[in-house]
């Protein structure tokens, strides 16, 4: 029981990270109808910026943890958003309205490019940082086993929940959110009504990148290690989360993220850690077979 509880806490933490990345996939898919294959790389860049800024702060002697974390979060969000914007502008915008595989292939190219760009600039080796946020709250203590939730886990989960609330408000209550939803429905009509479609799409990519950057920072804090290849696996899992929850649905992305995180944690704990990725992909395939629109997705009526 204690073991199960501990795995649940770990799984939810992991799931929060996947969920944050998954929102980027879901939003972009909703508005431009393509899989932003390079989104995993955006997350990886977010993590790298975090490592660099942490190291910089350490060298400058900023040791007060809350300040350090806040500075890292803000800078990583800022710089990663620039990457999100540039990726859309360079690789996807020229292909809008082209045949349907073109943007996906361009996205794969972008993903390969970014991976190698970071590898060339920062080296192929694993980057590790000192633990920044340490300590834990013990929940249950039995003779030989302790269930604990670490401060960093609390930080990840609380931050994710806050971002989700803020984000939902952004989409439902603001002018940008309205424009965003309008463009999802019909870009031509939105443009006729005076919505700047290009701007809205760019904003969508930037917001997706910002959330991915938060995920990147959190992972850096959580595991303390980052390399240029982390975007591929995380991206694939987050995409699986988006599909599982129902692509296009924001709560779905979050739910899918938590489910994937939990599956991964439980599978690693109870079956075998080697097969955890196989388990995740199998679930993705099963969901797509039996419920192609995902758990919370709207049923997809074929337009004839």
């Amino acid at each position: 029981m204690e073991y199960f509880l501990q795995q649940t806490i770990n799984g939810i933490t992991l799931g929060a990270v996947y969920g944050l990345i998954a929102i980027g996939y879901t939003m972009v898919y909703g508005i431009v109808g393509m899989i932003n294959f390079a989104h995993g790389e955006i997350y990886m860049i977010g993590a790298f910026v975090a490592v660099i800024v942490f190291t910089l702060l350490g060298m400058m002697g900023v040791t007060w943890v809350p300040a350090a974390v806040l500075i890292v979060l803000v800078t990583s969000m800022l710089f990663t958003a620039a990457y999100g914007w540039a990726v859309e502008r360079i690789a996807y915008r020229p292909l809008r309205g082209s045949f349907r595989l073109a943007p996906l292939i361009s996205a794969i190219g972008m993903s390969i490019f970014l991976q190698n760009y970071v590898q060339l600039l920062q080296g192929a080796r694993v980057k590790s940082i000192q633990p920044v946020v340490t300590g834990a709250i013990p929940l249950i203590e039995t003779g030989h086993f302790q269930v604990a939730v670490t401060y960093i886990q609390i930080l990840i989960i609380v931050l994710t929940v806050l971002l989700m609330i803020g984000f939902s408000l952004l989409i439902t209550r603001t002018r940008f959110g309205r424009a965003q939803r309008a463009c999802e429905q019909d870009q031509t009509m939105a443009a006729l009504l005076g919505i700047d479609v290009d701007r809205t799409i760019s904003m969508t990519f930037m917001i997706g990148a910002i959330l991915a950057a938060v995920a990147g920072v959190m992972v850096t804090l959580y595991y303390g290690v980052v390399d240029f290849f982390i975007g591929f696996q995380a991206g694939l899992k987050a995409f699986a989360a988006a599909v599982l929850g129902g692509i296009g649905s924001l709560p779905g992305a979050m739910l899918g993220g938590f489910l994937i995180g939990l599956v991964e944690a439980y599978w690693s704990a109870y079956f075998s850690i080697e097969y955890k990725d196989i388990a995740t992909f199998s679930i993705l395939i099963l969901v797509l077979i039996f419920r192609p629109t995902g758990l919370l997705g709207r049923p997809d009526v074929e337009k004839v």
Binding site: I90, A91, P94, L95, S98, F99, A102, P103, I105, S106, I108, G109, M110, S111, I112, F113, L114, Q115, N116, Y117, L120
Partner: peptide
Amino acid sequence: MLLFGAAMIAIMVWRP
């Protein structure tokens, strides 16, 4: 690989 990725994008933009 860097050039390979860049070439994929460029080709798609230039000749989809």
